[in-house]
Design a protein around this nucleic acid. Sequence first.
RNA 1: GGUGGGGUAGCGAAGUGGCCAACCGCAUCAGACUGUAAAUCUGACCUCUAUGAGUUCGAAGGUUCGAAUCCUUCCCCCACCA
Length: 402
Amino acid sequence: MMTLEQQFAKITARRVDLYSAEELKTRLAKSVAEKKPLRIKMGADPSAPDLHLGHCVALNKLRDFQDCGHTVVFIIGDFTGMIGDPSGKSATRPQLSREKVLENAKSYQDQMFKILDPARTEVHFNSEWFGAMTFDKVIRLSAHVTVAQLLARDDFSKRYAANQPISLVEFLYPLVQAYDSVMVRADVEIGGTDQLFNLLLGREIQKVHGQEPQIVMTMPLLEGLDGVNKMSKSLGNYIAVNDSPKDTFGKTMSVSDDLMWRYFSLVLCMPEEEIAALKAAVASGARHPRDVKDELGRRIVEKFHGAAAGTEASAEFARVFSQNQLPAEMAEVVVPAGKIGILTLMVKAGLAASTSEARRLVQAGAVRVGDDKVSDVRLEIEPENGVVIRSGKRGFAKIRVG
RNA sequence: GGUGGGGUAGCGAAGUGGCCAACCGCAUCAGACUGUAAAUCUGACCUCUAUGAGUUCGAAGGUUCGAAUCCUUCCCCCACCA
């Protein structure tokens, strides 16, 4: 059994904001005294079914709470998902059908239980309460928030100042999220730093409903593979939980040296002292950054795919990229016997999206048949069984004649 | 409802009758260098039966030898005023 101090330390590690430390201590003490786990809320939007490492930052935190005996209350925003959230730019998100939302939610749960303990997780759909909510209640709820309050939110004020559109729906979203907290009687809510406003509004709305306000904790936003923007699906700079071990490892290796420490901390939850020690080892030359990153990649793969997969992905990577050999497995493409143009062949093999692209790749010197570099776009070959077409560093296809 | 501004390739943004498949930036892809690092440099970046052809600049019509550029109608977006 952990002491209160230990719990507090574990629970607040890596966090950015915390409102407030005192409240959290008090409530933890109460929880211990009454032997009643705290309810830790987090919400998610089911519009995209893929979780990525960015989501794992908060999920890891939830897991910390579970390890201390608390209950995670996970809210799937199916109701809001069906309305279509226009957040961010003016592009309104497509509305999702009921079926699609459920399907996404299902896949979501499969992925999140790679980190969370299902025995200590409650899952709710917010359509449970919003589906039946009448409009007079909605209006009454909105009465608790002023436009000035909403405009205080960073991204709203920026967009307003820049004459960029803000949909009324977006204004309503924080309120919706806040009301979720009321409905599940959240003790703590976790989110990314960009969620701070919404989380804090939850406190206000809970007070209005006579509840003790939730404690709010935000987690850092993990930078994506580009090293600049936060990891997100729309920017394509992400490592998905469901990526293959090979991809997960490869993408990890493309993270910059400077950024990899964040991944150690936020994805693997490595304690700060250990990270500091690793950094020191790299700085002194005792360890090569590449090897440290290899370890990072291996451990991330292990987290989602098991120990064997990590070692294997690392070995495969070394084989293909360090030693420039062929991968152990590659896509097979069946082509009819006889002569075929190289461009056509590449498109058929999925190595290029169009013949124009295939042409460019050939002209750039990126294409090989077997070991021979192809430089003539009009080359016709008569492929042999098992010959490998390579396009760039990552494109491989094995040909089968048939 | 009124006034003004606007819709150009993944994004941002030039271009306002021929030199426009459309400057430039970002993103992306490839090559060099490497640790698939990062950074940097170079090239490419609508499609095709490919030194040519075909489709693009919100949509549809029209004027013209010729339109992303001019005209008409329509659709959509934004701000301000009410």
